[in-house]
Write a protein that binds this DNA or RNA. Structure first.
Lengths: 234, 234
DNA sequence: GCAAAAGTGTTAATCTTACACCCATGT
DNA sequence: ACATGGGTGTAAGATTAACACTTTTGC
């Protein structure tokens, strides 16, 4: 009976639902995180992940895409739910639960300009500033998840340009795993999966000799999955 | 400017936050799910996961433990967050986001009685009834997660009694993975991890000869982790 | 011509898989 | 004595890990 009473009581208790975005990028061989100066009190001016309250008339996933669009101008970005943070006192102002979602975006000149306009900054993942609330915890959890997921799913490619070289891909994985990989074994492994399509172009930015460019072939990846073979890098 | 206006507007929009529990158990060689008859309109009497609104003054994790306690009488149960479900129209009555958490519990006679008192029923995982809302989707996602996590973390033991035999453990993993395992290879693998402590007792319920009982040794598991060796079963 | 990154194979070690018979005991 | 599940080892195949030199080209 006391249970029922309390249940009825609780029915009235709505709370704020926010979504915060952990935005990863890759540039100059470094894994980077996009952080923002908070624009509202309390904690105005502190470093923070970008986030927003979820609207009553929008799906959670849509809210994440909206936040990203409003903050960076980017659309159709790879995004995946991490987990929800719901400690009762995680936000000092009011009771608020936050659904963290992480995004992988391709940094290029265009993006960088947009980002600057929005007052944001890319930080190297191992030189992050102190973030508000539980945002550092979110980043930590997201990085663990990224390390894990990049290994078993081809999500790393979301961080690279459409055309990339094998050394670039290796450098990305080294940044994610935070350890060095053997170039010969790495090349052998990724090529053996048959999901990379070799192009007739070379990228000369990385060396005088130039390295061949590749594209990720999604159809071949689907075939790989159907064959029962397990995608795994490192 | 229109962004700012809408942001301010949105600040007022709270919503219901619920948590739903996917409760797994293991009995008679089968992986089972605990489902409940919904007690409130709408959809009263339909099969459902057990859940509750999260209270303003309780952590998300605590809410999960409370739900489980109220529904089954069990305390200190293994529980882990799955993900949050936030489609805007997932609940026809009102806007509500649900944080799904999955629990692993040891079924025994005592538990079964409690469960019955609460009007719940254990269903085999591959003969589930139709559940309300997006609950079947939650179960599906939880099962995928369980398959994955049981492989890399010693959470399977949460489903077994404190003392168990190797054949029981194998049967559990077969139920989770939904495929048969080779008895010799399985035994070799789990014993090689050095996290099982062999007891001087035998369990005779499974055969005339009886099988030795083992206990999971958490300290040894910690040592295994520190050694850098990767826990993996199958 | 030299510095700098791209590209290429082999071997040993490890891990995984497949597979068949004897053991202990209750009936 | 027999039926039932418990317990044991080995060999072939697959995967991983370690390792060094040649190629190309801009300067």
């Amino acid at each position: 009976m006391s249970q029922n009473t309390s249940d009825l009581y609780q029915v009235k208790e709505k709370m704020y639902v926010a979504t915060d975005c952990i935005i990863f990028g890759f540039q100059d061989g470094k894994l980077k995180l996009l952080v923002f100066r908070r624009k509202l009190a309390p904690l105005e001016g502190e470093w923070s992940l970008i986030g927003s309250f979820v609207r009553l008339d929008e799906d959670l996933e849509i809210a994440g895409q909206r936040v990203l669009r409003e903050a960076t101008g980017l659309e159709n970005v790879f995004m995946q739910q991490l987990k929800s943070y719901g400690k009762k006192d995680r936000d000092p102002g009011y009771r608020c639960i936050s659904v963290a979602q992480y995004a992988l975006i391709r940094i290029d000149q265009y993006d960088e300009k947009l980002v600057e306009e929005h007052g944001a900054k890319w930080y190297e993942i191992d030189h992050l500033p102190l973030l508000i609330l539980d945002h550092n915890e979110m980043v930590h959890d997201a990085l663990l998840q990224l390390k894990h997921n990049a290994r078993y799913k081809p999500i790393g490619f979301e961080l690279l340009p459409e055309k990339f070289t094998i050394p670039q891909l290796q450098s990305l994985y080294e940044a994610i795993y935070q350890r060095e990989l053997d170039a010969r074994n790495f090349r052998k492994k990724v090529l053996s999966l048959n999901v990379l399509e070799k192009l007739d172009e070379k990228d000369k930015t990385g060396s005088k000799r130039g390295a061949f460019l590749y594209k990720f072939n999604y159809e071949n990846y689907q075939k790989l999955l159907k064959s029962g073979y397990i995608f795994e890098i490192a």
